[in-house]
């Protein structure tokens, strides 16, 4: 039996105040792919991620994750579905009332199956993964620098080691060294766990280092989707403009 695609969007349409953001948009992401989602600013990249997460219900079309429709009425199936994905929000979106440790421990505690020692080890493991010290666990989100917020948010998104990881501008605001570390980290996790990753990014280095596939969002739909090398050759004003002279760097 062929496994169902991790993400399947079919004819999705959404509009804000009469202005169409997506129209008849379709996308199919298979297991193990790392998809870089590109598009000009205001082209609806974050909106697309919100649709995949089920935070925004499209006006038309269907969104299926792991073969399950997001409109599935069964609450238990919905919750189990949500546990299979992790999201890194653009601004981090850490719970400001909880410490770093509690932020990362939160999804683990919500399972109500793990004991305190297990959770503590896992949290410290995640902290080490994203390059933070155990002592950082005591800090509150307000005391963190921008780059640290991002790393803690990534650690939280990885807490359950989800099968699908959605990243909104993961390396924006990180210094080049850190973003290289980040690329290596996500790459190694992907190999170990067979993660599927969808990331919105403007950073060509991240895209070159990580993505296996590229999806280009323009004119309210996905105009190109495929392996990196293939998409580079697409003749569309956005694609040629975006990659420009750097086209070769990605290959």
């Amino acid at each position: 039996m062929k496994p169902s695609p991790v993400i399947e969007l079919n004819g999705v349409g959404v509009s804000f105040g009469g202005k169409a953001v997506h129209h008849d948009l379709s996308l199919r992401v298979e297991e193990g792919q790392i998809v870089g989602l590109l598009g000009g600013s205001g082209s609806g990249k974050t909106t697309l991620l919100r649709e995949i997460l089920g935070l925004l219900q499209p006006d038309a079309g269907t969104v299926r994750l792991f073969g399950i429709d997001l409109n599935e009425p069964d609450v238990d199936r919905q919750r189990n579905l949500r546990r299979r994905l992790g999201m890194l929000f653009q601004q981090g979106a850490l719970f400001s009332a909880l410490s770093v440790f509690d932020n990362i421990a939160f999804p683990l505690r919500e399972l109500r199956c793990l004991d305190a020692d297990w959770i503590r080890r896992l949290v410290h493991l995640k902290l080490a993964m994203v390059g933070l010290e155990p002592a950082h666990g005591k800090l509150m989100p307000a005391e963190l620098s921008g780059g640290m917020v991002k790393r803690v948010a990534l650690a939280r998104a990885l807490a359950l080691e989800p099968e699908l990881l959605l990243l909104d501008e993961p390396t924006a605001g990180l210094d080049p060294d850190r973003s290289q570390n980040f690329v290596e980290l996500v790459g190694s996790l992907q190999r170990e766990l067979g993660l599927t990753v969808v990331m919105v990014t403007h950073d060509l280095n991240t895209l070159a280092g990580l993505a296996t596939h590229v999806a280009v969002l323009a004119d309210q739909r996905i105009i190109a989707f495929g392996p990196k090398a293939e998409v580079m050759t697409v003749d569309h004003p956005f694609v040629t403009g975006f990659f420009g002279a750097d086209r070769r760097k990605l290959l």
Binding site: L114, D117, W118, R121, L122, L125, E161, E192, L193
Partner: peptide, 11 residues
């Protein structure tokens, strides 16, 4: 093998 399972085994 994910890290939660690894922690379980290690313990």
């Amino acid at each position: 093998l994910d890290s939660a399972a690894a922690v379980l085994l290690w313990r």
